[in-house]
Amino acid sequence: MKKYTKVVKRFLALVTPAIATSILTTLPSQAATFASSESQFNINNFSSSPVDVVRTFTDNKTTAISTGGQVTADAKAEAEFNIYANNSASNLSFSQAQGQGDGYTGSAESFAAIIGYDFIVDKEFSFDFSGLFNLKTSIDDALTERANARGEFLYKLLDSDSGEVLDSFKISGNLSTIGNNDAFVFEPSSSITFDSKTSNQYFGGTQEYALTSFKGKYSRTFDKLTRLTLIESKSNQVSVYTIPEPSTILGSLFSCTMFGAVSIRKRKRASSAALLVNKI
């Protein structure tokens, strides 16, 4: 089981996001900013159940700093892998921030993952799934306000013995309002078929979005006995802030000590109680 612990640590080191906030006093502004990033994924009807350890991971962090305006930041992460009821798994990651007034910065990040070890199959491995991935940003004043949202959903199926990635499904996106770094990527493997899928996106201007919802099935056949590891994760980050004019930046540096900040971090690490948790 030690090799599984190492896999998890390497995996979390790559996908767990970090936020670094730069603080500057801002010009008076009565407009508003908004950013949200959300992802959900549900799995049902596994053709087989994992015979070894199941792990779930959640993490979230929010930061809100005000120099006179109003700002809020919220983050939520949930993950569940239930092999006893409906043979299912699900997780969600949600981050949102919004501000209004004459100076603020707010950010939120969330992370959720499910990992199932050793699905032992000799013919077919399959499951049904549904999910969504939504990014939204909005500002009122293009001169003094910024809103950013990004997210990534990633599903991987690995050969437990060799570590080879057999199949993957990736959705990622970034909105920078205002900016030129907008992107949206939807990359499923050939083993995934969709019963339904809708996608919409709009880049440019003071309001942007990238949205998709989907439902389908994963299926892959094997010609020999194979042990599989399933990893599904999502991370979502947002930030909103006001910016100063160039002539005010120097004075801003001297006023940072007057700022009030609130930072909340929650980490939750859970696993299915009936499985071999204590062996790792």
Rank of each mutant, 00 (worst) to 15 (best):
D167I: 13
S47W: 02
A97P: 07
A77E: 09
G131E: 09
A112C: 10
Y117L: 14
V54W: 00
L157Y: 05
D122E: 15
Y155C: 03
D182R: 00
G103D: 11
K76G: 03
S93K: 05
D167V: 15
A142I: 11
R146I: 03
E124V: 13
A64G: 10
L166Y: 05
S162K: 12
K170S: 06
D74L: 12
S126Q: 10
K123E: 15
S126W: 03
T144G: 03
T72Y: 01
K136G: 08
N82S: 11
E164A: 12
D102M: 03
D52L: 13
F46A: 07
S110N: 08
A73M: 06
K136P: 02
T67I: 06
A97K: 07
E187V: 14
F184E: 01
A75W: 02
L132R: 08
F153K: 07
G131Y: 09
E78M: 09
I120T: 11
S49T: 13
S93D: 08
S110D: 08
S88R: 12
N181C: 00
A113W: 06
K136T: 14
F169M: 15
A64F: 03
A85G: 04
D122M: 10
G131I: 15
S66G: 08
F57S: 10
S168H: 12
L92N: 12
T56S: 13
